[in-house]
Design a binder for these strands. Structure first.
Length: 432
DNA sequence: TCTGGGGTCCTAGGACCC
DNA sequence: TCTGGGGTCCTAGGACCC
């Protein structure tokens, strides 16, 4: 059996941990650039605020209802997320971290003790709440897709926990779930399935496999259908345990992309922005113990403009050897950026994607690239860089290519709470 | 004036290779 | 009458997730 633990209104709940006065009142958290609403308290949901609603449109109503509004504070959310995962790992050796606020837990050891499962799930929820202060829902079922469904239904239960142990319970859950609400069915397939006359998840499960393969994107749909029948098709990918922290992560890409505060066309400004994004992505790479073989640079024009044609332009470079070195990655990125830019075009966003990932230190050396001595020096440089920026704040030490100031292109982030658990240096200054 | 970011998997055409 | 098959890489896009 698999449990899915999902934090309720996660970003709002994180803000509440450090500002208890936010309990019981409507709260929302904005996306990067203060663009749209991405987390809402129950009170804000009850007032009709929608997920993804543009902030500038919602603003008058937010004021009218005296809703507390926060820019997103990822250092805070990331840290609380790690604390939640640490608590969860006390309940099973195998935690598959699905997102910042959701983890799957392998409860295989409980297969023959069904009645205990619900009590165990309730204990997980209670412990996370007591130790971290974040409320959760727990769904338990034989597959990830059914666990998601159980979790969804648990939100409506008083105990916030639901177990689908028997096939009768699973069938009842399938009937109680709209087909469009199944994990893996998005807007497009939701509409399509309804037009084909399916209403509930049970209707979908009852269709023949061939029909599902034809109408639901081939193998992807078949996997989903199998999972609804209780046959696991999605990998369970457990996180590295605390006693093996060096095990490299299995992710396939690392990205850093941002919208600008205002459109940019000057190549120098765009270069500095991209160099900054490379630095962020490379830090993430090193944090995960990875090196990248492939680098993609992208720039984007106005996504919401009605004009035809592509909105995103990408250029891919394959590096001679996989690397996590900011300098090497920056050179490659800026070289490709120059080829990508068109004079006079206003770009609204840019970014860097690193892929072809392999464990750092295991990378094949190139015959004509760096010597082991150079490599070692660069590694030492990067670990000093990370140590300094970890202590004094990001970009305390940076490459000159990233420029001295980001004020030209930085996004808006005007309503941010302090880094309560992470930013000791600045927090000390604030208090001083 | 103002609409996010980071992921996953899959498909498809063109260019190129043997 | 009859014109292969198996690959890679690049770019772009679709669909989905949180």
């Amino acid at each position: 059996m698999i449990a899915l633990v999902d934090c309720n209104n996660f970003y709002v709940s994180c803000e509440r941990v450090f500002q208890p006065r936010l309990e019981g009142v409507p709260v929302v958290v904005l996306s990067n650039n203060d663009g749209c609403l991405i987390s809402r308290s129950d009170e804000a949901k009850a007032l009709g605020f929608q997920m993804g609603e543009p902030y500038h449109l919602a603003r008058p109503r937010l004021r009218e209802h005296n809703v507390r509004v926060f820019s997103s504070n990822y250092p805070l959310y990331g840290d609380l997320s790690r604390r939640v995962i640490r608590v969860l790992s006390e309940f099973t050796p195998e935690v598959d971290v699905y997102s910042i606020d959701e983890s799957f837990l392998n409860l295989a050891g409980f297969r023959y003790h069904q009645p205990d499962l619900a009590a165990y799930a309730a204990r997980i929820r209670k412990t996370v709440l007591e130790h971290v202060g974040i409320p959760t829902c727990v769904g338990v079922a034989p597959t990830k897709t059914l666990a998601k469904m159980a979790n969804r239904l648990a939100k409506k239960q008083h105990e916030r926990v639901l177990t689908l142990g028997t096939s009768e319970q699973q069938q009842a859950a399938l009937q109680a779930t709209a087909v469009a609400d199944v994990w893996g069915i998005g807007r497009r397939y939701g509409h399509k399935l309804q037009e084909l006359g399916l209403t509930t998840a049970a209707d979908l499960a009852a269709m023949p496999e061939g029909w599902v393969r034809r109408h639901l994107g081939g193998v992807v749909g078949v996997r989903l259908w199998q999972e609804l029948h209780g046959r696991p098709c999605l990998d369970f990918d457990p996180e590295a345990l605390e006693d093996e922290p060096d095990r490299p992560s299995r992710r396939h890409s690392v990205a850093h992309t941002r919208s600008f505060g205002r459109p940019q066309s000057a190549p120098t400004v765009l270069s500095e922005a991209v160099a900054s994004f490379v630095a962020r992505a490379a830090e993430k790479l090193r944090r995960h113990g990875l090196a990248a073989h492939v680098l993609t640079v992208l720039v984007g024009t106005d996504r919401h403009a009605p004009t035809a044609g592509p909105k995103t332009y990408t250029a891919v470079t394959t590096l001679p050897t996989a690397t996590d070195d900011t300098g090497t990655l920056t050179r490659a990125a800026l070289h490709r950026l120059r080829q990508l830019l068109r004079p006079g075009t206003a770009y609204h966003r840019a970014g860097v994607v690193l892929s072809g990932l392999e464990p750092a230190g295991q990378a094949q050396l190139g015959l004509f690239t760096q010597t082991p001595e150079q490599l070692l020096r660069n590694q030492q440089l990067m670990s000093r860089l990370d140590a300094l920026n970890g202590r004094f704040g990001k970009d305390a030490v940076r490459y000159a290519a990233a420029g001295l100031s980001n004020e030209q292109w930085a996004g808006r982030r005007q309503l941010c709470s302090p880094g309560y658990t992470t930013d000791w240096y600045n927090l000390w200054n604030i208090r001083a």
